[in-house]
Amino acid sequence: MNWEILGIWIGALLSLSLYSFLYRDNPFYKFAEHLFVGMSAGYWVIYTIENVLKPNWWQRMFPAEGGFQIVWVIPGIFAFFMLARIVPKIAGLSRLALGMIVGAGAGLGMVSVFQTNALAQVEGSIISISAGSAFEMFSSLVLVVGVVSGLVYFFFSKEHTGIIGGTANLGITILMVAFGASFGYTIMARLSLLIGQSQFLMFEWLPTIPRILGIGGGA
């Protein structure tokens, strides 16, 4: 049994089953979909136990050199609290664990997110529009005009008429251009996945057919 070829065939048949949905819903698609969901769930459970729970919790509570680290009981209790959500009578306990996660995340992220996504971006927008080559000056001008007009569009304390209205219109135009670019990138991403899967089917799966039929080289 050539396991590599078997793996390629399973991958190819499941890919074709999933693509068959493009024609219409059918049992092959349903089979592949359910298999994917079931296997993903099973895989993640085992992966999380082996790669998260065991090394980060269990092996620290019971180290290889022996002994018992009692402090690691605390995260275990919080993990149990998370599972309490599925029992209505004690579901409230899960809030303690969630509160700790949200609190730690907010505390850690507050300064970093503000620094990275607000302060640094504001600093990056304050640029000279008279420095560099003609193209760089034009780029800087587009950036400054784009930022200002985009902000004006979201300024609702004054009616969008006159110069404010004109600037807001420019702002929404620039936003639409940005959304268009983003949509174009999304199409590219989806096509890339199709291309990747087509490369797999054409250059890895199709060549196995003559090998199986004994027409080509040995398996």
Binding site: G124, Y185, S192
Partner: peptide, 26 residues
Amino acid sequence: CTAVSAPQFYPYLGTGQLVGLLGGLK
């Protein structure tokens, strides 16, 4: 990064928070 997420990372290039970026298959 994937092409889907590339546009959201371009602001980091302008500020120098990213030294360079490969967006999607291109």
